[in-house]
Design a binder for these strands. Sequence first.
DNA 1: AACTTGTAAGTAAGTAATTACTTAATATAT
DNA 2: ATATATTAAGTAATTACTTACTTACAAGTT
Lengths: 203, 203
Amino acid sequence: MSILKEKEKLSTRDKILETAIELFANKGFSGTTTKEIADEASVNEALIFRHFSTKSDLYAAIIEKKIQEEPDMLIPLKKFNETGDDREVFKSLAIRIFENCGADTTFLRLLHFSALEGHELSEMFFDTYVDYVNMLLFDYIQTRIKDGAFKDIDPLLSAKAFIGMVINFIIVQELFGQKKRKKANTNKVVETFVTLFLEGIKK
Amino acid sequence: MSILKEKEKLSTRDKILETAIELFANKGFSGTTTKEIADEASVNEALIFRHFSTKSDLYAAIIEKKIQEEPDMLIPLKKFNETGDDREVFKSLAIRIFENCGADTTFLRLLHFSALEGHELSEMFFDTYVDYVNMLLFDYIQTRIKDGAFKDIDPLLSAKAFIGMVINFIIVQELFGQKKRKKANTNKVVETFVTLFLEGIKK
DNA sequence: AACTTGTAAGTAAGTAATTACTTAATATAT
DNA sequence: ATATATTAAGTAATTACTTACTTACAAGTT
């Protein structure tokens, strides 16, 4: 396995972390045992507790790591002011979200498990991603309303509407998605959502 | 507690079921112990296994029960043909979804936990609710396109877009929602979403 | 009424396996 | 030689689930 080969190069601590990320994302916190993590990482179980004092600490370290990783999902939003093309802005945002959440379910599953299982860092996790995207898009929409390009509609709700269309589509496909269900053409989905939204909000 | 008083009237089997629903919804399958269920239901732990041969069987019984309960979320969609008012149709659907998912998080949490934890009945659970609503709305939109009232846009994607806006809003508020975060005015949210969507899809 | 019988409801105490976590000894590297 | 990495073998507590026993209650027979 290429994954194993990569892991052999990693430090013990990182082997534990990477394996734990996979397992916690797949089975949640209480569904994952420390023995399982150790076996999967080919590491003695006691080493987990040498690096992280408790199982909860390991979980917290994982979420903190995910929080600190600059989510490049947010990059296109920072270039908002540079372009005047609404369609391009919303398209690139949607595509970024698809690439970030759709390609690998680990992130989405981790985020959902942490919320459902009520982890203390779940709130921060959520704020870093979902809330932050909402605020950036909120700013953009507000500006375009002031420009007179968009209708005088609640900018935060509009932002949530657009994000909701995209995110929920991905969640249904990736989190609830069955094997048999065929994946949709991302480009067509994005085009349709952006058209629908812009036709609805443009003056 | 009124809940406890109600439970006293229930049969042992129903006491177990109701308590298990609460606990599985709050802490997931692997996060809930049979002893916990027994204690919370004021029932001897052995009785759980008299009624359900395994913990998994109990979980399956719960999901099956939820699946069989006619979801009244779907009622307004069946009256689609009776009215010609698009705005009223989408508004009543959105309000229904808010009432069904927003009032009590039990259902949403159960649905999400079952998907994340990969329960065998999760797929059927999903189809009964999410997929079914999608199909009903898909039919309506398709009809309105043929009527010439809506643009010639992909009807399934449009349906998913609208449902996505609403559902994701509720999920963020109820599943990820923190105590401090103030709940939005449901009516305003629905009005904004329906306006946005209809302006986008109407010819 | 009294007694037997059958069946379901309920319980206390146990099972073996697994849990998160520890300890104390050993290997390795500097 | 000193510090660090790694390990086998433990710990007490908890897990899902079982066993063997008692109680409750209704039906049938005398």
